[in-house]
């Protein structure tokens, strides 16, 4: 069962739609016998159980995707997704009000934060001065307009493997040390290395994903993919069973579906 954390933080429809598409394609790719196949009643109001465009019935039952804030359900889930749009301090307050801010860091199954969900898994955010869950050892900053890039950072940008961080005093601006920070156009860069995290299995460096955000998690030892928008930042993070994407896999085309399938296959 896949649980989407329901804490009232914005539109989860695209995440739901993308999960459904990813489950469809996983189901097609796997041995049908290994999958559950029940025709359960679908929860009212949400299109969990729509048929695939191929006309083939879904092999996963609709009730395998659950929208919940119930800690017992979250604890029992095979995978947990923490979505979020909007403003970080408001989202963090909503998570705390649901009693989930202390609970989520105790989860042991694979957990994926998306966009604001990813930011809430960091230590803090400059947006509204939010103190966040502190799963990842980094903080969330606002893009600096002085860097000359448009804010929000909106559109398709490429992912690169993080370079080893040079040692530096804490609090200093991260040094642009990764590939992707140079002057050469991204498209002309060698794209031979694979991104190493299991989340990016099968995806080479330079892969494009879709971003919409004004705040970013800084580089840190938990960074698994770097992107560049005036500054190098953590496009994705991982630590133990926790994963997070600052970008939107649910809107990132075939690449995004690969990432979601990789997560669902962990």
């Amino acid at each position: 069962m896949i649980a989407i954390v329901d804490y009232g933080a914005g539109n989860i429809r695209s995440v739901l739609n993308a999960l459904r598409r990813s489950l469809d394609s996983l189901a097609l790719a796997r041995d049908d016998n290994s999958l559950i196949s029940t025709e359960a009643a679908r929860p009212s109001g949400e299109p969990f159980g729509m048929r695939s465009p191929t006309g083939r019935a879904q092999i996963f039952s609709p009730e395998e995707i659950v929208l919940t804030a119930d800690t017992a359900v979250l604890r029992a889930a095979d995978k947990v997704i923490l979505p979020g749009v909007g403003e970080a301090s408001t989202a963090m307050k909503a998570l705390s009000d649901c009693g989930l801010a202390e609970f989520i860091p105790t989860l042991t199954q694979p957990v994926l934060g998306i966009c604001i969900g990813a930011q809430l898994m960091c230590r803090s955010s400059e947006e509204g001065g939010a103190r966040c869950m502190g799963i990842f050892s980094t903080d969330v900053r606002r893009f600096d307009a002085a860097a000359g890039e448009k804010i929000p950072h909106m559109g398709w940008n490429s992912l690169f493997a993080p370079a080893p961080l040079p040692s530096r005093p804490t609090g200093e601006t991260p040094v642009s040390s990764c590939p992707g920070a140079g002057e050469a156009p991204m498209s002309s860069r060698a794209q031979s290395r694979d991104l190493s995290s299991p989340l990016f299995k099968g995806l080479p460096e330079g892969t494009y994903v879709y971003f919409v955000h004004s705040f970013y998690p800084e580089l840190c030892p938990d960074t698994i993919a770097v992107s560049h928008h005036g500054v190098d930042f953590s496009a994705a993070l991982a630590k133990d069973n926790f994963f997070a994407c600052q970008f939107h896999p649910e809107k990132s085309g075939a690449v995004g579906e690969t990432i979601l399938r990789n997560f669902l296959s962990l």
Partner: peptide, 11 residues
């Protein structure tokens, strides 16, 4: 629009 959102994986 609902059908587009369900089937299409880009913004």
């Amino acid at each position: 629009v609902s059908r587009v959102a369900a089937e299409i994986n880009i913004p």
